[in-house]
């Protein structure tokens, strides 16, 4: 983690809202970098002091009474209205329209509007995750988790071989699609092996390439028909993610190499696969 990333994450760290891996990374950085450590400590003591001294506006006692009596008026109104509808001709005494504070609109209209807003909120929450803007963020989290897990749990490969002619046939027996497995060792990205994984609600293939001491997990699964040719780069928690799509497949590369290396990897990968 570099200073820029550490600064970005400082508030999340201060609030204890980072995931354990990022938390460890930032702690490591603060141990190594006296400047960031000093900045963090200053920020923390300032924010805590300011937070403690910010005036808190307790509700005055009469507000509680106002609310309680308005709620009682509210329930007193409801049955009267129902009865009035049943016995209209006999009921001549008019009740004042319920007043509102903001709009001068009768309450039932506000209630109607509130109902629409609530329905909209509920509907929005029911929309599947992938349709929402943070779908990428959600997938990014999964990808990074999978990448980290593969390095952590000593389960980097299901088939360990630098020979594309070993990896590819093995994969073909496991999944119902046949991703390209180019040999990129002459470009500085030797093949390490392949693995099966489960992402975004489906089985995917992970191809593992090496860049010096770093590993690149390349997640591959068939592209949907409406896929676009967009390339997307996401940097998160010190990991780089690079996404692209070709006519057949979705690719997500995850690694801790720098963004340029990952771009080079993508270019070499594409150059090799288009040749086939």
């Amino acid at each position: 983690m570099n200073c820029e990333e550490a600064t970005k994450l400082m508030d999340g760290y201060l609030d204890g809202e980072l995931d354990p891996i990022t938390n460890q990374a930032i702690e490591q950085h603060l141990r190594d970098c006296p400047n960031c450590d000093q900045a963090y400590k200053t920020h923390r003591s300032l924010i805590r002091a300011i937070g403690n001294a910010t005036p808190y506006y307790n509700a005055p006692a009469e507000l509680r009474e106002r609310i309680q009596s308005s709620l009682r008026e509210e329930i007193a109104e409801r049955p009267i209205r129902d009865v009035a509808r049943d016995t209209q001709p006999l009921f001549s005494r008019k009740r004042p329209e319920p007043r509102t504070l903001l709009l001068g609109t009768p309450w039932n209209w506000l209630a109607f509007a509130a109902a629409i807003i609530f329905a909209a909120i509920i509907a929005l929450n029911l929309v599947p995750r992938w349709q929402r803007p943070e779908a990428d963020q959600f997938l990014a989290t999964q990808l990074i988790a999978s990448h980290v897990r593969s390095l952590m749990a000593n389960h980097l490969t299901d088939v360990a071989s630098s020979d594309q002619h070993t990896v590819k046939p093995w994969l073909d027996t496991k999944v119902d699609f046949a991703p390209p497995v180019p040999d990129l060792s002459s470009e500085g990205f030797p093949l390490v092996g392949g693995r099966l994984d489960y992402l975004d609600g489906r089985p995917v293939v992970a191809l593992i390439y090496q860049r010096r001491k770093h590993f690149i997990n390349l997640f591959v699964w068939p592209a949907e028909s409406n896929a676009t040719g967009d390339t997307k780069a996401i940097s998160r928690q010190g990991y780089q993610l690079l996404h692209w799509v070709d006519s057949d497949f979705n690719y997500w590369a995850a690694s801790d190499v720098n963004a340029n290396d990952l771009q080079t990897f993508k270019q070499q990968f594409e150059a090799q696969t288009s040749r086939h």
């Binding site: 506006y57 509700a59 106002r66 308005s70 709620l71 509210e74 509102t100 504070l101 209630a111």
Partner: peptide, 11 residues
């Protein structure tokens, strides 16, 4: 603030 809180409770 008081008006809004009262209305929010009714809502």
């Amino acid at each position: 603030a008081q008006d809004v809180v009262q209305e929010a409770y009714l809502r």
